[in-house]
Amino acid sequence: MAERIRAEERLFSLVLALLTSEHGLTKNEILSTVQGYRERYEFGGDLTNLERQFERDKDDIRELGVPLETLEPPGEPGNNQNTRYRIPRVGYELPHDIAFTPEESALLKLAAMVWRDGAASAEARRAMLKLSGLGVDTAELALQYAPRLRVRDAAFEPLRSAIEKRRVVRFGYLKPGEDAATQRELAPLALTRFAELWHLYAEEPGTGRRKTFLLSRITTPVTITKTELPARDGDPAAESRAELEKLWAEQSALLEAQPSTDAESRLLRRPGTSRRDDGLLVVHFTDLSVLADQLCSYGPEVVVIAPEELKRAVRSRLDRVGGDHG
């Protein structure tokens, strides 16, 4: 038996073969001639394992963004013996007019560093590998940076996948001010990081209404259903941002912050914060309980003046913290 060929060699050989074949290759041609398969191909033998391997490899290659096409022979739908596979060069290659300056390349490298964990990190790294194929040199930055964005919400990755695949999702959601989580079924449209929190912008399939959800309030694992949705027009990310900005502008609290404290500098840094003539800060927010948690961390450096609901929320949290440590 021939030495087992490594997975990357088989995948690479498959891409090369499909790129050079103008009219595509049938599955049988691939399994019997392409390196990595042909060593295990037995004429007239059982090909089940080899076929399964080919199915997995197709998925892996497509996941990389390589447009592996399936051509059904005309007049013979469903006859997969004659189905042909190919990779069109135009869809495979980066467009020729895409080039990066050394400064842009440096910025891209930093952008890839932002994600340090999770699937996005591996994807950003792979994107950089591919762009390195363009042969651009990277400019040395005067100042070294180590940017890092952590995604703490377990719902993030499944939602990102669901948005890409345009699938309906299901999850339990604890609405602010309610005691129990309710089951939601939604068409996810965009993930937006705003005011240091991740939000999901999604549509209710029944009513078509679009709403914003906080990822930190999702209480169950996200289930991706088999229900697929048609592509939507417009820019849901921009729409979501506009919704959040509107909510942010509408809701505000009146706070008294001690001068020259962390509380003061952090509250002043929030977008839209203003200082009144009497020194009190007008601070905007999207979610009252999230703001209450943040204010608790500032301890005596900040006092809520209004609204009453926020005052109550902060008071009960402080009682809890004090009680737990009494």
Partner: peptide, 28 residues
């Protein structure tokens, strides 16, 4: 077979674009 670098997948491009948005406040 190969002449030019391969395209990015939608997810790969989106990871970099989101990273760029995060960095938009850098002087660079």
């Amino acid at each position: 077979a190969i002449e030019d670098a391969p395209r990015l997948s939608a997810r790969e491009a989106s990871a970099l674009i989101a990273g760029l948005q995060y960095l938009a406040a850098l002087p660079e």
